[in-house]
């Protein structure tokens, strides 16, 4: 009201503040996207890489037509080169093929983990934030407890009870990150519920369930979805750590974490066995994080 700080919180500019250009046509929107991406080569690489990983997860044979479990003993432990781009392992299996096919199990587990965390955590947070009072108090104390136990230990406790296997690992990882979603969802719900426009809606007679559906959910969902993308990266790391420790799919099924574990015994002589699947994990997580940063306001601030 009284300030005229030049770049106010909304990120608009005086003068321009009243005339934000509205991308009216799809064509304009596309042009804006083009400009946005042109200034961010890292983001483009990330998107392309994640797309490739997704292809690998669903139709691996497009990228690597070979059989990931078929070994040619004569070719064992070959360094990366022309014949085998990422080398071969101790049974002569092609590392590239195994990494590509490993994406499937690793990503499946990650998707399950994030879905579990999003649904359970989101509901807890929504309930706590919207109902408030003792419901909020109780649910948030529970969430505090989940936060007091380091995620990987909580996952390990769950695995102890559930047993081994990709899906069980995924559920364990998902439950362990419920707390984050619950907190963000609650904070967002509270923020929106206490906002003036929700009070305004109430004061014109809008019923609570209509307010929840039309005002609270749409306005609170954004940050939670951004968190979901970020948690996707963390879940890949958690899932691969657990499969590295040997709780995931039993061999010979390829899975990124267990591929690194297999390569460990040959670390001194055949570094690529460990390095390549690890690169795949790191690159995927990095790309996902880059995309999440782009979604988290970078796009909105861009004009």
């Amino acid at each position: 009201m009284t300030t005229d700080v030049l770049l106010p919180a909304e990120g608009t500019v005086p003068g321009a503040a009243v005339a934000v250009p509205v991308p009216a046509t799809p064509r304009e929107r596309l042009a804006r996207l083009g400009r946005f991406l042109r200034g961010r080569p890292g983001l483009v690489v990330s998107i392309v890489f994640v797309a490739l990983v997704l292809v690998a997860a669903f139709v691996p044979s497009v990228l690597a037509p070979g059989d990931p479990t078929l070994g040619v003993p004569a070719d064992k432990l070959q360094a990366p080169g022309l014949g085998h781009v990422l080398g071969t392992d101790y049974l002569g299996r092609d590392v590239y093929t195994r990494v590509v096919h490993g994406a499937s199990l690793s990503l499946q587990a990650t998707v399950i983990a994030v879905a579990v965390a999003l649904v359970v955590g989101g509901l807890i947070g929504l309930l706590a934030g919207f109902v408030g009072r003792w419901v909020d108090e109780t649910l948030m104390r529970f969430v505090d407890v989940l936060l007091a136990i380091p995620a990987i230990l909580l996952s390990l406790a769950l695995i102890t009870a559930l047993g081994f296997g990709t899906v069980k690992v995924a559920i364990a990882v998902g439950i362990a990150s419920v707390a984050n979603f619950a907190r963000v969802m609650r904070a967002e719900t509270l923020r929106v519920r206490r906002s003036t426009y929700v009070e305004a809606a109430r004061s014109v007679g809008t019923r609570w369930y209509v307010t929840l559906r039309r005002h609270v959910l749409p306005n609170a969902a954004g940050p939670v979805l951004v968190l979901a993308v970020l948690e996707f990266g963390l879940a890949i790391l958690a899932v691969s750590s657990l499969s590295f420790l040997g709780y995931g799919a039993p061999p010979p099924a390829p899975e990124w974490g267990s591929l690194v574990a297999e390569g460990r015994n040959y670390l001194a002589t055949a570094w690529w066995l460990c390095a390549m699947p690890g690169f795949a994990i790191a690159a995927t997580v990095l790309s996902v994080n880059r995309i999440s940063r782009a979604l988290d306001g970078e796009w909105a601030r861009f004009s």
């Binding site: 906002s195 003036t196 426009y197 929700v198 305004a200 809606a201 014109v204 007679g205 809008t206 019923r207 209509v210 039309r214 005002h215 749409p218 306005n219």
Partner: peptide, 22 residues
Amino acid sequence: NPYASLDPRFTVEEVITEPLRA
């Protein structure tokens, strides 16, 4: 504060008709 009292996701028409819908 007119910056806070209107849902940023609503169009002006939705804002104005909200009481009517209610």
